[in-house]
Design a protein around this nucleic acid. Sequence first.
RNA 1: GCCCAUGUAGCUCAGGCGGUAGAGCACAUCCUUGGUAAGGAUGAGGUCACCGGUUCGAAUCCGGUCGUGGGCUCCA
Length: 642
Amino acid sequence: MAQRIKLTLPDGKVLEFASGITAAGVAEAIGAGLARAALAAVVDGRAVDLSTELDHDASFEILTFDSRAGREVFWHSSAHVMAQAVKALYPGAKLAIGPPIEEGFYYDFDLPSPLTEDDLGRIEERMKQLIAADTTFERREYSAAEARELFTREHEPYKVEILAQVEHEGETISVYTQGGFIDLCRGPHLPSTGRIKAFKLLAVAGAYWKDAEGNPQLQRIYGVSYPDKKLLQEFLVRREEAARRDHRKLGKELDLFSLQEEGGGGLVFWHPKGALIRHQIENFWREEHLKNGYDLVYSPHIARLNLWNRSGHTDFYAESMYPPFDIEGNPYQLKPMNCPFHILIYKSRLHSYRELPLRWAELGTVYRYERSGVLHGLMRVRGFTQDDAHIFCAKEEIEREIARTLDFSLYLLRAFGFQQMKIYLSTRPAKSIGEEADWVKAESSLRAALTAAGVEYAIDEGAGAFYGPKIDICVRDAIGREWQCTTIQFDFNLAERFDLTYVGADGNRHRPFLVHRALLGSLERFFGILIEHYAGAFPVWLAPVQVVVLPIVDSLNEYAGRVQQQLAAAGLRSQLDERSEKINLKIREAELAKIPYMFVIGAREAEAGQVTVRRHGRKEQKVVDLAEAIADIVSTDRQKEQ
RNA sequence: GCCCAUGUAGCUCAGGCGGUAGAGCACAUCCUUGGUAAGGAUGAGGUCACCGGUUCGAAUCCGGUCGUGGGCUCCA
């Protein structure tokens, strides 16, 4: 009498079961391996618990740790276990929210006294006990009134507040329990706590309730968890690798840059070696811009406050700007952006459609107020140099211009060694200015350019700036992390505010499109990204010292000096280590300094006009004629290859 | 800005429940002239972030300030 139901699997296969079978039962029927890996299921697009009984034909999928959704279930359940431990250890704790994140999970608590990192060990111990107990996660659905009564009784004011939201949205109200722990939760969850085979709590941090600063500050605990100890191990190794590449650490070790207490937070000092790398980046950048139809401009660092009033920055950007200051009774402002300056250049005379598009580029240094707590090495600073440009073009030209800019950006980023990019298109937000037709035109040109470039992209609906849609490009670094570099943005606001015009073929004035773009982002941040990407071992064309000459004994210093002269003559940057130290020491130090080439010189080499070449990170030695060795490096230098 | 942590020689760090500090590396001088990741000796170097309080006495305890790190928020 049991009814039969049909389940359609992701591969299109259809299986038949008796109605009332659980999702876990289906997994079991498909295979024992899958049943073991199963964390939850998706029925008709809805994630559900494995214990869910199925009673109608549906699409069906088992979630495992291999899928994003599966991991989210895993981490979400881990957050519940952590919350259970915290509630057991700190009786006054009130629960806020505990979602899965990119990698791992967190839970926010309102606690009578602050947590320190030392508390994490205690919480971990308790979690281990809870996991060993292998308690099942149980789901129950409640009416709004019942749930409200339950959480009021449990003294969980934040849950009551969330409940109001859930109720408002008309969602089913579900509550999960494991052991004595109760939480308002959409689910789904793991079958039981024992599925969490490995976990680690990582950090405590402050966070505001609902992320709003006026609200009470909660204490957030971050953690990660995995179904396998090996995966946790791998995660920890990845963290170590990231720490090893940290640009702040390498910046100090390699003497590239510093941030100084006496100098002020977020203000970067470029030391000679870092400055040399920046010089290389800037030269390349300028040359390529000139080759690609840009003109270079320069603008001042301060301007009358009136300019910033007209541009609207004093309205919509005030919180990022430093206070104005007085010069002979006139208020002036340190620049947080370059755009108004390029616009002033544009407005200095009348322009014809025949001149367009105008592409004006500047490595423009700007200053923005960032709250002390957010400063971070080179990644987040208060003074930085944007690789900025503004394109003024006619409506008919924008598609081509965007396509060009996109190609140019991808070309530049690839030259710096980034092969994989991720591209995002952000469209019109709810609150925005400008003509609907212009937005449509701008967005379609961005789409067309992306399609023409044959690159994949994701659309971020409504994430554009209020003044125009944009494309952002993120690079993927050597250890798989994403960093946003390029941004290409339309700006309808400034074109309007400054009443930009050009004279068209019809003799009438027209409004040009204004496109703002930074390809590397800022030189400071990009430098930080490069340091981490290369782990400090820069490719030959960027390396501050490309070759170090290492004579084995003092008596060969003279020959070594001549070798260095020849390197210089070939346009290579070299260093001569003529200290009375053993070759072992010299090599060790050259390796630690991550210098790409070592020329070791002994009596044999001096005799034959040769050098022994050793490359950074490789042990092989190659004895070659000096001229050949130099020619080889020169060609590598030109090719911008490692 | 807020929460947590943290600030000892140029760097990396020990120590210190109150009696003016120590190592390794780096630096200087000397010895050593040695073929692929640290040769040896000697020496110099610190108002223990800064300001204030408690105390006979503070680097150590307390308060504040500044910096740094991890978050929150925002973004290049």
